[in-house]
């Protein structure tokens, strides 16, 4: 690791000013992803801006919903009474990710910025368009068991590794971003991007911006939420496929549904068509199977990950059955 410059900031305002000034600087919060990447020489920032002293660690209820500061820890949210009671999907997703130690380090903003676990991205001796634009995609014809089945192209078939993101996109979260001049708010669903022609970019955050807050609107899914994470061991492993499901029920009728997947695309993958299909239907296995089928439209395997074409609908079915308390 190069001996980078280090600066510890105390205020949000100064931080965004520093970001504007030092375009080669990276912010560090928990560090659990960034330091890992720096140790592997995947990234080598010459300046680190430590933002841990910024007052963005809050989790609080507001009129608009739940406000979560960008520096709130993942474990802090998962153990938070409001989150557990009103947004259990988020708590479940967070607890499905990483380890207790890492959840004690990882912030919300940092988790959103978490980079892919694609082996070709991590190994600097391999081609990777995400790490080194125009060097090729090692995974495309390589070992791609973990890789995307939705929205990928030949430039990049990597997936977003976060569990938290899957819950946040399902819950219609919004993100507040700030630069030295202005604040902007965007739908969480618009924050991450597909690889397209710029796989080196994971999201739409500008280099002079920082994430300051995540807002989750009130919802009626708390009684019927479930997060399924399918992986190669029973804990502490990245998802092959994960599914966040939230149902708002009136008797046996689905008034409203939220469905999203992880481990299947370059971004957390919301299943709008399946949600629309579910609306107004009765909860039962056949309905859920049909929703899973609809959700899989446009899916494409790349060889080793072909099994996800079967695993993903099975996981959607499982998540919906559990959310509806049918299994």
């Amino acid at each position: 690791m190069i001996n980078f410059d280090y600066i510890r900031m105390q205020s949000v305002k100064s931080t965004v000013k520093a970001l504007a000034k030092f375009t080669d600087a990276k912010m560090i919060a928990g560090g659990s992803n960034l330091i890992d990447l720096m140790k592997r020489n995947v990234t080598a920032p010459t300046k680190l801006i430590d933002i841990n002293l910024l007052p963005l660690k809050y989790i609080e209820q507001s009129k608009e919903g739940l406000r979560i500061g960008a520096l709130a820890l993942n474990s802090q949210a998962a153990d938070h009474e409001i989150v557990k009671n009103k947004f259990p999907l988020l708590a479940m997703a967070i607890n499905a990710g990483a380890s207790p130690q890492l959840r004690n380090m990882a912030s919300f903003g940092g988790n959103m910025m978490q980079r892919t676990r694609c082996t070709y991205f991590y190994d600097t001796s391999m081609p990777c368009n995400k790490r080194e634009p125009n060097s090729g995609c090692g995974a495309l014809n390589g070992i791609n068991r973990m890789h995307a089945i939705f929205g990928a192209n030949d430039n990049c078939i990597a997936v977003n590794p976060s569990d938290m993101n899957v819950a946040l996109i399902a819950l219609d979260a919004q993100v507040v971003l700030l630069n030295a001049k202005k604040e902007r708010k965007m739908a969480f669903a618009d924050f991450h991007k597909l690889a397209e022609d710029t796989p080196n970019l994971d999201n739409h955050l500008q280099s002079n911006e920082m994430i300051v807050e995540i807002l989750i609107p009130e919802n009626n899914f708390s009684k019927n939420s479930y997060y399924v994470k399918v992986r190669d061991r029973n804990s502490y492993a990245f998802a092959l496929v994960s599914v966040a499901a939230g149902l708002e029920l009136e008797g046996k009728t689905i008034k409203n549904a939220r469905l999203a997947m992880g481990g299947v695309a370059h971004k957390p993958w919301r299943l709008y068509d399946a949600e629309n299909y579910l609306q107004g239907k009765e909860i039962n296995t056949e309905t859920f199977k049909e929703a899973a089928k609809i959700a899989m439209k446009g899916a494409k395997g790349y060889g080793h990950n072909d099994f996800k074409l079967d695993l993903a609908p099975a996981s959607i079915l499982e998540a919906l059955m559990k959310a509806a308390h049918l299994s």
């Binding site: 676990r117 082996t119 070709y120 190994d123 001796s125 391999m126 090692g138 014809n141 390589g142 070992i143 190669d232 061991r233 029973n234 804990s235 502490y236 492993a237 990245f238």
Partner: peptide, 22 residues
């Protein structure tokens, strides 16, 4: 990855040894 003759999972995140939950 036989194209390169290199391991693709030479770490504890990708080479899965059992954890407590297993």
């Amino acid at each position: 990855d036989h194209r390169y003759g290199v391991y693709t999972n030479n770490n504890f995140a990708d080479y899965h040894v059992p954890v407590h939950a297993d």
